[in-house]
Amino acid sequence: MSIHHLPCEMLRSVFQNVNSHDIPKLRNVCQMFNNVIKTNYCYLPRVAYLVKIFSENGRIMIANMKSGDINGCTQNLFDFDFKHWREIGIVEMEFENIKECDSECVEQAFTLVFNEMVKTRQSQLRKMVFTNVQLSDNTKSSFEGLFNMALKQCENLTVDNSVLPLSFDMKTLNPAKFDHFRWIASSGSTSVPTTDILRKLQNDMKVAVNKRSFLAEMDSVTVEAACDFLEEWLGLPIASFFNLSFHNCDDTWKTRFLAECERRELTHNYMEFQSRTHTNAHVKVSFSQDASTCCIWPVLDVPARTTGQSVCYSRYFRDF
């Protein structure tokens, strides 16, 4: 039996296992293939794209480009043909320098983007970035819809120097997928629960069956939450990699942190904490007085040997 005699549902199942870059080529094979792919594009592998939305001379612009490319199509957001999104998979979305624009225009822009993301069934989103974005409360409903979509799909969430009409809901935060979270010099409709976010990463690290990397950079966090994360890692059988950076950690914060470590009997040698389950694993804590920053990351000692040389040890840490 010829493949052309297969039902459309079976052809779609076959096409779902094809490389995303080959799907457009299959449309040129015959009219039947073209019709099946055109009708079911939302369910098939799609070429990864990066989308940037930014303001230019008071207008909201969109740049649409293949992931890894430098150049792409840039035009006014409201003139963009969103039908193209049916054929691509958006893996990264960035919002940059959206300030001093007409609030009604910004509201329409975010509503349009959110609706089109839903309509074209974008399910490949892995990273969302907000840089120098200031939004009014008028965009709250559409923005929260977009952000909640990011929580369900994204591994990386970055907010830098922005004001967002966002109220964190723990019911949507706890099952969120991200393991890289950055929130710097930004604010929301309510205070950002940085302590809860760190505890979420701690719980994800605890239940991980394989090694994962966790990264967090936040304006502030409580001493207790930082010690909870540290204490959890020191006792885990799987030593996941992580890199934590907390700002606004002055001398008072450092004194309280050391006192809490002493209370919990978390002994250290020059701010280096020995793992309780891995002989050669440590956690390093470093304070920068000038920047009022606390950085915490894992350190591993691994044996190294060369011909004719006795065993020595080399030290390294995983940098993200």
Rank of each mutant, 00 (worst) to 15 (best):
N248I: 01
N243E: 06
T195R: 11
I197H: 02
Y41V: 09
M170N: 11
H180A: 13
N64Q: 08
N19D: 14
P237C: 05
S67L: 06
N148G: 11
V207M: 07
S189L: 01
F273H: 04
I98P: 04
L266Y: 00
Q153G: 03
T195M: 04
L157R: 03
L157I: 13
G145E: 00
E100N: 13
T74L: 03
Q309H: 14
N210H: 09
W253M: 03
I197P: 00
V207R: 04
A109H: 06
E272W: 03
L44C: 01
S191T: 08
D219R: 08
C8I: 12
G145Y: 00
K254C: 12
F229H: 05
S240I: 08
K38R: 13
E9S: 07
E231W: 02
F257L: 06
M32L: 15
V311K: 09
T307L: 15
A63C: 14
E217W: 07
Y316M: 14
F143T: 01
T74P: 00
I60A: 04
I197W: 00
F242K: 06
K83V: 14
I70T: 06
I70H: 12
T139L: 07
L215M: 07
D81E: 09
A208V: 00
L236T: 13
S275I: 03
E56C: 09
Q153M: 09
E104T: 12
Q153V: 00
Y49W: 10
R315Y: 03
S186N: 03
F214Q: 02
E224I: 10
I70A: 15
F320T: 05
F130Q: 10
R126Y: 02
A239I: 07
Y41N: 10
R59M: 15
A216I: 15
F168Q: 02
A304H: 12
D228G: 05
W297S: 11
K99N: 11
K66A: 10
K52W: 12
